[in-house]
Design a protein around this nucleic acid. Structure first.
Lengths: 248, 248
DNA sequence: GGGACAAAAAATGAATGCAAAATGGCCGGC
DNA sequence: GCCGGCCATTTTGCATTCATTTTTTGTCCC
């Protein structure tokens, strides 16, 4: 069992992931490329939590020298994905339960904001598109298709963020979403039947408020929706035997 | 008029500023020290917007080599304070009006969230302390003491964020606050009499909702409060001749 | 005299080298 | 037999050096 990073030649996902971060619009620089690849690599959970990330190994793996790697590590540390212990290297950040609660709440706040802003500017066409996604998601729900449900769900929330017409918010949202991506996955997969139905009802309410452009109301609903997600996720973490994790 | 950074020996404020950023709890490392100093230096507006920040000059100024400086620059770029043009160095980021609007809205969302969370956990003592600050601020308002008013105002908003019991939110809030600090200053100093009175009324409503632990309501009020601030700030920027900027 | 091209100069991006601190193993002591 | 201190090795942090790109300047031609 490899407890650290494999040293095969350049195995990291070829940076085709998100691609729309802060300053990374067109990245010819080695440092930027490394940053994107490392971020994806960490976000996707390729390194166990709390594991040491030796610079040397990463350098060999990426085929670069330590300078650009260290620059990328500093940025990732600033983003909260890893932590740098003085003279003792970088570790993948361990998220305590408290950290997760905080992150979920911040995400809730950002989505809540997104909903409020979206009500100011969203077009009927965009709402129709979200309705489309909603029905799609409902289909996955009926078929008990967790994966499809999860993806449609993600796209709905992304659509709301997009409709907010605020790139700064979008970037911040993506940043925080990255930090809890692993947990969100497992939380969704571990969703119990009851919570699932509840989530569907909440999404109905979200759509309703969005149609009426009721910003303040939508803000409340989205916050509570994320709060409930948080509760489900934390419950899953503390009692993982209850919800049977789906075979991935 | 020095349009760039002075080259006197180590003139940057000696890092005694905030001190509670992300990973910077106890920073014996040179890179961390440089990061704090550079961040303060930029946030305080010592470099004109859009100005080139030559590495060489900064290195001489700080008495260090280029490696830790470049690491700090990458982090500042990730934070959105500066931007790195490929092969053409670092510039202080120019904030367009749209950028400012977006930033204010995100701040509004974070404060809105902070208010909501604060209602869940705030103690009577904390509310009393905020009331205290409120009366202090009111005194400054009566005496037309802009500076005192501004400081009390800041402390009230900080207190609400503290009461949210969410360090992740606090860090994000500080990060965004740093980006618009200069503008916030001038916006507050340019505040017209009418807006000032309005802000006081809004603060009354904030306190009222806080006392009643009305999270959802407080969330709305705080968002609108920041929205109004945003409007005032943008107006000031587009018609700077109306509000007479204070002497400093 | 003005504009375009080219070469020099400077600055950036990345790699390497060196000192200090940490990790791990070993030996001696209890 | 177990624990603590000491030394070798590894790793980190920073400085220095090398290569590439940009910018400037000088010159030539129109």
């Amino acid at each position: 069992m490899k407890s650290t990073i494999p040293d095969t030649g350049v195995p990291i996902t070829p940076s085709a992931g998100n691609g729309d971060r802060q300053e990374n619009r067109h990245e010819p620089s080695l440092h930027g490329e490394i940053l994107l690849r490392l971020r994806d690599y960490v976000v996707e959970g390729n390194i166990p939590e709390g594991a040491r990330v030796p610079e040397r190994q990463l350098c060999e793996m990426l085929g670069i020298s330590r300078t650009p790697l260290r620059e990328a590590l500093k940025v990732l540390a600033a983003e909260g994905l890893i932590e740098l212990l003085p003279n003792r290297g970088a570790r993948v950040r361990q998220l305590s339960q408290r950290d997760l609660e905080e992150l979920f709440d911040v995400m809730a706040g950002l989505e809540s904001l997104a909903g409020r802003l979206a009500c100011e500017a969203i077009t009927d066409a965009e709402i129709t598109a979200i309705e489309q996604l909603h029905y799609e998601m409902y289909g996955h729900y009926l078929h008990r298709d967790m994966h499809g449900y999860f993806q449609a769900n993600q796209r709905i929330h992304e659509s709301i963020v997009d409709a907010a017409r605020n790139d700064t918010l979008k970037i911040a949202y993506a940043n925080f979403a990255g930090r809890i991506r692993r947990v969100r996955y497992s939380a969704n997969f571990a969703r119990k039947r009851q919570r699932w139905a509840e989530a569907m009802r909440e999404h109905e309410a979200i759509l309703d408020a969005l149609r009426r452009r009721a910003g303040s109301e939508l803000s409340d609903i989205l916050f509570q929706h994320l709060r409930n997600k948080r509760t489900a996720a934390i419950e899953h973490l503390t009692e993982p035997q209850e919800g049977a994790p789906a075979s991935p």
